[in-house]
């Protein structure tokens, strides 16, 4: 019993047990799609029939815009690459960008939100105004400007991944900042913080031990939804020609940009596969995020009808996150 109790407290497992009906279906579908995405990303060298920048094999050049065939299941691109291989390798690029972007923005956003919210003062006021200004701005345009600043446009695999990830980070930091700050401001007024001050705990100790631990419960939802958005922003940057060079990595948005003229000529196989890859990756991650969001909000959580153990009732009435995403009721 103790083992399953512990298991039930793991983030996703807990929600999976809590969910019923459609919400459960969405969560399961999301987990399945994300699982496929992760497998493709990690096992790309094994699964892809060719390299992402491979133009020829023993039997000669692939040729450009070849229709799907036994050798090239999804045909070849206008640049003469194998479409299927680039789609699979693209998952790896997207995953790298997600990891770097989310880690960076969580770290910076939480730190800024914590310091700004707890210490207050003019630094807090300036940061809030700046974050609000950035928050109101079209994220894609901001990412474009950041991408120009970081890479000047073109780049290789790692520099490209970092350039894209940092451009996306610039957009995300204000979100984490707002959420964490709002929670911190709420938590710091609680009685236990006052008690900690009275018994003489130092400011850093209160900030990191007492406040931070109680201010991060809405973050898993935002992290998942931001991961989905990172894929979209990366693809959009690639589509506008600010992405990663085809010789250094496969990137779905770049391939879609190259397929604009193919589409007008009726060539579907260069545009549809990378596009579907983006849709499924984003869909999978978003479904997880949406389900977590709904399950965390008692008003949106679907109720189990009829039978239910007392334990379920307790689990359902647990106020996981009422102040959803930093908006205090």
């Amino acid at each position: 019993m103790a083992g399953s109790r512990l298991l039930g407290r793991l983030p996703v497992v807990h929600q999976l047990r809590q969910a019923v009906g459609l919400q459960r279906g969405m969560l399961v579908a999301g987990l399945a799609l994300t699982g496929v995405f992760l497998v493709l990303a990690t096992l790309a060298p094994v699964l892809a029939p060719y390299g992402y920048s491979q133009l020829s094999d023993e039997s000669g050049n692939f040729g450009a815009q070849q229709a799907p065939s036994a050798e090239h299941w999804l045909g070849t691109t206008v640049g003469g690459y194998d479409v299927l291989s680039r789609v699979i390798w693209g998952a790896r690029t997207a995953l790298l960008v997600i990891i770097v972007a989310v880690l960076l923005s969580v770290f910076v956003g939480i730190l800024l939100g914590l310091v700004s919210g707890y210490l207050g003062g003019w630094v807090d006021r300036v940061l809030v105004v700046v974050a609000d200004a950035i928050y109101a701005f079209p994220t894609l345009l901001l990412a474009i400007v950041a991408a120009i600043a970081i890479s000047g446009g073109q780049s290789g695999l790692w520099s490209g991944v970092f350039a894209a990830a940092i451009s996306i980070t610039v957009v995300f930091i204000p979100q984490y900042f707002r959420v964490v700050r709002a929670e911190v401001v709420r938590v710091k007024a609680e009685a236990f913080i006052e008690s900690a001050k009275v018994i003489g705990a130092s400011t850093p100790r209160i900030m990191f031990r007492h406040v931070l631990r109680n201010s991060t419960r809405t973050l898993p939802v935002i992290v998942t939804l931001n991961a989905a958005e990172a894929v979209l922003t990366l693809a959009a940057l690639g589509f506008l020609g600010l992405g990663i060079e085809p010789t250094s990595a496969a990137e779905w948005g770049f391939d879609l940009n190259k397929s604009i003229s193919d589409v007008a000529a009726g060539i579907w196989w260069t545009a549809v596969p990378p596009g579907i890859a983006i849709v499924l990756a984003v869909l999978g991650i978003t479904l997880i995020g949406e389900s977590l969001n709904d399950l965390a909000d008692p008003r949106l959580r679907a109720r189990r009808r009829g039978k239910g153990t007392p334990a379920d009732a307790v689990a359902q009435s647990e106020p996981v996150a009422r102040e959803e995403l930093g908006e205090v009721q």
Partner: peptide
């Protein structure tokens, strides 16, 4: 609605065009 959100505008545009 989630599906529309997950579809990048440029891909939706390309498919519509096709």
């Amino acid at each position: 609605a989630i599906f529309f959100y997950a579809t990048p505008v440029f891909f939706a545009g390309l498919v519509a065009k096709l």
